[in-house]
Simulated scan of single mutants.
Amino acid sequence: MQGTVDGFSYGFVTPVAAFLMACLGGALGLRCTIRSLRKHGTLKLGWLALGATSIGSGIWTMHFIAMMGFTVQEAPVGYDPTITFASLAVAIVMVGVGIFIVGYRGATAMALVTGGTITGLGIATMHYLGMAGMRLPGRLQYDTLTVTLSVVIAVVAATSALWAAVSIHGFLPSLAASLGMGVAVTGMHYTGMAAVSVHLHGDGSPAGGDTATSLLGPMLVGPAVFLLLAGAVVVFDPLLVTGDRARQRPVLPAPRRPGAPASWQSHSHGERAVRPPARRPRRRERTGDR
């Protein structure tokens, strides 16, 4: 028996929430990648790892928020926790490989193509591994052409995002790149879901696994962590958000020397105070004979 599939059982709530999470993860990941290009050694490694974790976690959270709206009318749908969270690890690792290639090789054509392909395949692998974790009294079937299209979308989106990370600087261009990445990743997800059909068998009893509702708690942990991370970035590292090459430091007047008039204070934007030349005593004019 063919099952009746509905990917929008909550209307536009789940697609919009999924899109926002994809944008947030992409924005943090791209800004971390940009910051890593100006660092070396351990700091570079740390920024790239944070970028990979941000993008991978954002895509994974996007996927399962969107899956909250997926239902099969004739049967309950469950999820295997092990496979579900294994898909998170796959996303972070494969996205990380792609980001590290670009972070260490730079914006060369070979690095972008290789890194974008690996990152895109990581996104697609996470999606279909997460789908493999579904438990229902039946089996999933996929349309090959639509699946191929979804993988192509993932690879193109990932390559474009990595190119933007190393080529576009400034907050507004990076924000536009993050929105574009959110559209592409979300579009890839729903393209992949359009390839799905469900063939049911048995009496429609549950096939094991946790329900979507029971997974809502772990899903909400991701958005909360991202919001905290974004807040910490804004408060403690404005350079990560603005993309400026140098921080804007406040101009502080130089300390006044003891006994020096106020007019001797420096007005040279925080540089060392320059004291005006001392007035030489006037020579007394000779009057009369010695």
Rank of each mutant, 00 (worst) to 15 (best):
I168A: 15
L145C: 09
V102K: 00
L215M: 14
L172Q: 12
S178M: 08
L30F: 00
T211W: 01
L162W: 06
F12Q: 15
G106A: 10
A86I: 14
S263P: 03
G231L: 14
S266W: 11
D143H: 13
V97C: 09
V274E: 14
I34F: 10
G78R: 06
R257D: 10
S87D: 08
P250E: 11
P238S: 15
I123F: 03
G11K: 06
T159V: 07
L50Y: 01
M68G: 10
G3S: 06
I123T: 03
G222N: 05
D237L: 12
S174M: 15
M1C: 06
W60N: 04
V16S: 03
I59N: 05
I92G: 12
H201I: 07
R135N: 05
A212I: 02
V90G: 02
V221Y: 08
L28W: 12
W163R: 10
G222H: 03
Y128A: 03
Q248G: 05
A262G: 08
G103S: 10
L48Q: 02
V151G: 07
Q248R: 14
L240D: 10
G222D: 09
G202T: 08
I99P: 02
A111R: 00
A124D: 00
V234D: 14
T82M: 10
A184W: 03
G243V: 04
L229I: 07
T186Q: 04
V97N: 06
V241R: 07
A224M: 13
L175V: 08
G56H: 04
W60G: 12
P250C: 07
G231H: 07
V233Y: 05
L45E: 00
V90I: 15
A157W: 02
A278I: 05
I55K: 12
P253M: 11
S54A: 11
L200Q: 03
S263H: 05
E271G: 06
Q141I: 10
I59C: 07
V234I: 15
L45I: 11
T108S: 11
G231N: 12
A27E: 14
L121N: 04
H63I: 09
T125Y: 08
R290S: 08
S57A: 15
P250F: 01
L88T: 09
M67G: 02
